[in-house]
Structures are given as structure tokens and as C-alpha cells.
Design a protein around this nucleic acid. Structure first.
Lengths: 352, 352
DNA sequence: CTGAAAGCGCTAACAC
DNA sequence: GTGTTAGCGCTTTCAG
């Protein structure tokens, strides 16, 4: 079979100039007559304008990039579905990359996107502001989702970052409080964690632990705030992202602190790890230990007991992020913080 | 900030012609001297060749498209991770689309890919051969993953398709036995299902049901073959793809045939539905009903009892598919069938 | 070994 | 309203 019809073919077949075809197809002015003829010919030739030509001419690629840490994590699957849904309804392509939570891979993928002239990006960032600042500066329109890049090490990371992030979760956080001037779509981690901690407190729990992974610093911070000073830092532990490491962290936590009676995890992979580790150590949920997991995923209900979770609207977050990055013409869009919901199922009980 | 450096900028700055720059960067011949200078300048200018220009010139986009039904289904998440891993190591972009299992959306997405001049595609097909034949004919290199398009209705769908598919699962299935001459990466459904059915038989089960979804026809066929004639068609039921429909199908099955003692599901979403439906109807697993689920997903182990599964290597499948579609230069690659494994956990017991 | 030049398919000035 | 033309950034003959 021969190559696809080009605009030139259509022009010739319709007896008009290429510009006219271009105009007709992009809704420009043309006499009804001409328009009809061009449209007919185009349809007849099964003509599809080449994005390549258009993009080169306009020096930009339509569509958007999407960078997530791991598609095997159901939450990012939900997020991606949201992005794709929005992109589809806009007829825009999305170029996907999975970073594995590794800043280096993330950088490489960003480079690839640059090479493709993809100038809009939705990212669940793994690298810190050092990797992202140049990207923004280079003119890419980026929207962060689910989390923000951590501050680079040289900056007064600790308290400053904390303050910014706390502020962002508040009602009308000022844009300049954010690290990097980039819009983001986030869940209201602070409220979510606070609600969970209060709930556990209400059940009588005193020693509550937080089990997090990379990118869960905001949640950890919210946790520290919710439990209030003095926080027992031994009860705030982190895995490095892999399921194995999550399991190790969970197991280590349970073993080193048998006095804890409840744990809230920063994500579903950690929740999974906590369930597994608890089972392995013969800790009954919720009799011996209560569990609240961040992320509502379909399988949370399948566990026994079904897991009490802090639900965040993954799909909506993706959809909103895609909207933001698409509408980013001119005005820099404001960030959005979506509500979380504590869904009480069966994994929490009164302190023994 | 100004626009990115072009090949012309590099040429000027290095005092050579653009052709030379192009050659150097794509490993063509050049004097060591020139080469070095060009490379230095390019690095200094942070030059990145524009994929747009190159692609237009070469009338094709690098990279590949990836079409899956639903990223929220962990199995497709695994598959996607595999594809992405391979693409990343090849430095190629992947354009992702989620079809929702809907042939129409699939068609639209294919159209979008065509428009982008993406000429390589990995697909978990939802449409039948009527939608795929034209795509192949149009010159797209496609590799199917996880399943094959069903035959179009007008063809003698039933037995013919069945025969083909059975043949494919055999050792050295002839290529021409396949519908459409397209390579595919599949799991050995036939062996997987057979093993599961035998296992259940060994436990004493007589009335075994199959609970499938869209695209699980091969598995259903394998099931029918494994249980042997006469097959009780009431015990072979299908949902339409959504979680709700899967639940409805599972629930309906359990209620209409309380005599069944075991069910094998064609995918993890259906497994999830079966667990939920069983619980709702107060059926104990495995006391009242034994369960084998297709797909090993991390949460299978979290269920209680942990689910016995037919594991298929989702990630590998994706990786292999990407390799095939990338290597498709010239010789049409052969399909690959990957082994499945029955992982026995706790969801099966002797027939009561 | 290297440079000049011709487009790839398209849009946006600019003329008519 | 419509046609002509000049590129977008790149690779690739084709000369030198």
C-alpha cells in the first residue's frame, strides 16, 4: 500500500491550493462551496493531517507527557486513567514514562520528552527542585500531581519545606509559598492524615506509627503535626519504594516497637507491606494492631478485615492535572487541592 | 529563555555545515578533529536534536503506541511497566492509550496514533479483526499482547477461531493458523487453565465454573476443553469488563448455581468480584467454594485466605512485546507464548 | 571528508 | 476567498 495522502494530494484532487485545504480543515474561512468540496475529497482520500508536519511548523508538539513512579501501584494507575481520559476527550496524545521513583531515570525521561518537543508535562516528581527548576526554566509547562518535588538539599530543607507544604494544604494558600512556581494537583494530605490520627486517638491509641515511602514527606509532616509534639521519631519510618523495602520497613517497625498499637501508611504499597508483615509476625489486625492505609484501592475491601483507608480521588486528580496542563495557555493556573475521605472499614479497633 | 539550539546553531558555532553535524551525531564518517569539535560545541550549547525534524524527514515517528483496556487493572499495569522498561532502554517514547475495552475508543485512539505517524503499536485488542485488518494493511507494525482480536462475526467465528487459538497454544503453532498475520505475546492460557482445572479436579470438584470478561474467550475455550464434554454452559459466564458487571456476573453465577463448588476466573478483576460476591452471599472460601484466579497480583496474597492463582508474567510479556515491535525491521517476528504457573495458596480446598 | 541544497507535511504571511 | 511562498529542524543525495 502507498503512503498516506498529504495535504497536497487533497489540494490537487479538489482543485484548490494547499492553504485552502489547511484553512478548511482548521475551521478558517472558505466559501461553503469550496469547503464542501475539500471536505468531500479529504474524506474520500481518507486524509489525515500529519501531526508531524503541523508540529514542526508550530515548533511544538501537542499532547502531554506523563511521568509516574510505577504503574504497578494501583493509585498511579488511577491517576493515569484520569489523565488519559482528559487527553482522549481533547484528542491529544500522551507520552508516558515510568520513573521507578528514581531521579536519574526521571531526568532521562524528561530529556526524551524534550527531544520530542513535548512541552507539557504532568509529573509525580521523584527528583528535587534541582532537577525541576531547569525544566520549568526551559519553558516546559508542568503540573505536578500527587506530590511536590522536595527542596534541594542545600536549601534549609526541613522547616522551610514543611512550612510551605503546610501552608499549601490550607484554604487559600498563596502561590508564592510554593517551591517553584508550578501548579499542582494534590490531595489534602493534611486533613486526611489528621482525620485518621484523630480517629485512631478516639479509639484509644497512643502509640501510632507512620510508615511512608519516597514522596510521602508531606504526609509524614502532617502526621507529626497531627500527633503533636513531642513526636516519637522512631515511630516514623520510611521504605525506599520497592515492595521489598516496604516490607522490610514494616517488619522492622513492628519488631522494634512492639508497643505501637496503630499504624497509618503513606500509600497503598506500604499498606500492603504492613498487612503482610503483621501477618508474618502473628499480629492480628485489628486486635493487635490497627491499620489505616492511604489510598483507596479496589483490593482494600478484599483484605480481611477490609482495610480502613484515607481515600484520595486518583482519577480525578489525573483528570484535573491534564485539564490544567492543557488550559495553561497564558494565565498560570492555580493549584488545586482535592479532598480526602476516611473510609472506615474493619482494620481499626480499640486499643487493647 | 530563548528557543533551544538547532542543528544550524551548532553548525555555525562549530564552523561546519549542518550536514556534518548531522553525520557526527548519527555516527557517520567525519575526521576525528571535526567530530571532536562538533561534539564539544553541541555539548556546550546543550543541543538536542529535534525528533520532530527528524521524524518529518523520515516520515515516521520513532517509538511506539501502547493500547491497553484499563490501567487500573494491575495486570495491565505490569504489562505497561514491561513495555516502558524496554522502550526506555531503547530511548524510545511510548504513546499510551486506554481503551476501556471499548472497540470504538480503540479505533479513535488508533486514529490518533496514525495522525501522530506512530507506526508501531503494542495492543491488547478490544475490537475484532474487522478493526485490526485495515490497521495492519495500512502499514502499521502491530504486536498483540495478552490476547488476540476475536474473529469478525461474519466469519465462522465459533469453531474456526477456537481451532486457531488452540493451535497457537501448542508447541510450534504455524503462523498461518493465526487470524491476521500479526505477531503476539501471549501467556499459555491453555496450559494454565488446564493445570488449574486438573488441580481442582484432584481436590474432588465436579462442578467447576468459569467466570470471564471481555477478551477471555481463549481462556474460556481452554476451560471448556479442560473440563471436557459435555460442558455445562451455565457454568461459563461473562461480565462485560467493568467491576460492577464483574460483580453482577459473579453474584449471578453463585446464586443461580448453588451447586457449583469451584470457580476459576479469567482475570484479576473477576477474581476480585468473585471474592466480594462470595462474601456477600456468605459463601466461605475455600470451604463453600474454591477459587482460582487468573493473574498473580500483589494483593492476591493479602486476601484471606490468600488466593491461589494462575500467574502470567505480565511484565515480561510487555517487555517482549516491545522488543518484537522494535525489532520488527524486515522479518516478521514470530509470536511468543510465555508459560504460566499455578501458584497454590489458600483459596482452594477439597469439595465439601 | 565535507558543504550546499532539496525537501518531509504543514501553517501563516502575504499577495491577488 | 484563495493561491503562492517561505520556512519549522532535520537527513540525505550529490558535488566538490
Amino acid at each position: 500500500m502507498d503512503r498516506r495522502a498529504t495535504i497536497k494530494d487533497v489540494a490537487e484532487a479538489a482543485g484548490v491550493g494547499v492553504a485552502t485545504v489547511s484553512r478548511v480543515l482548521s475551521g478558517g474561512s472558505a466559501s461553503p462551496q469550496t469547503r464542501e468540496r475539500v471536505l468531500a475529497v479529504a474524506a474520500q482520500l481518507d486524509y489525515r493531517p500529519s501531526a508531524l508536519g503541523r508540529n514542526l511548523r508550530q515548533r511544538r508538539t501537542g499532547g502531554m507527557g506523563l511521568l509516574v513512579p510505577d504503574l504497578t501501584d494501583t493509585f498511579y494507575g488511577q491517576l493515569a486513567e484520569g489523565v488519559l481520559a482528559c487527553a482522549r476527550s481533547a484528542g491529544e496524545p500522551v507520552v508516558l514514562g515510568s520513573t521507578g521513583g528514581d531521579p536519574e531515570q526521571e531526568s532521562e525521561l524528561i530529556g526524551m520528552l524534550l527531544e520530542q518537543s513535548v512541552d507539557r508535562l504532568i509529573a509525580v516528581p521523584s527528583g528535587d527542585s534541582d532537577t525541576w527548576t531547569p525544566v520549568i526554566r526551559a519553558g516546559m509547562t508542568v503540573v505536578f500531581a500527587d506530590r511536590l518535588p522536595s527542596h534541594a538539599t542545600e536549601e534549609h530543607a526541613g522547616t522551610a519545606a514543611l512550612a510551605d507544604l503546610m501552608a499549601l494544604d490550607g484554604l487559600g494558600a498563596a502561590a508564592q509559598a510554593r517551591p517553584l512556581d508550578v501548579p499542582a494537583v494534590l490531595a489534602d494530605d493534611r486533613a486526611g492524615i489528621r482525620t485518621a490520627v484523630r480517629y485512631l486517638r478516639g479509639l484509644g491509641h497512643k502509640r501510632i506509627a507512620f510508615l511512608g515511602g519516597p514522596g510521602h514527606d508531606r504526609r509524614a509532616a502532617a502526621f507529626r503535626e497531627a500527633v503533636g509534639a513531642p513526636v516519637d521519631e522512631e515511630l516514623v519510618v520510611f521504605g525506599t519504594g520497592s515492595r521489598d523495602s516496604a516490607y522490610a520497613a514494616a517488619s522492622g517497625l513492628f519488631q522494634s516497637r512492639p508497643d505501637l498499637s496503630a499504624v497509618v501508611t503513606g500509600g497503598n504499597v506500604l499498606g500492603e507491606a504492613a498487612v503482610l508483615a503483621a501477618r508474618e509476625l502473628d499480629l492480628r489486625v485489628p486486635r493487635d494492631v490497627s491499620l489505616v492505609m492511604y489510598d483507596d484501592v479496589p483490593w482494600a475491601e478484599l483484605c480481611s478485615p477490609p482495610l480502613t483507608v484515607i481515600a484520595q480521588p486518583g482519577r480525578d486528580m489525573g483528570y484535573r492535572a491534564a485539564e490544567l496542563v492543557l488550559r495553561a495557555g497564558g494565565r498560570r493556573p492555580r493549584s488545586v487541592v482535592l479532598p480526602t475521605e476516611l473510609i472506615i472499614r474493619g482494620s481499626c479497633g480499640p486499643r487493647r
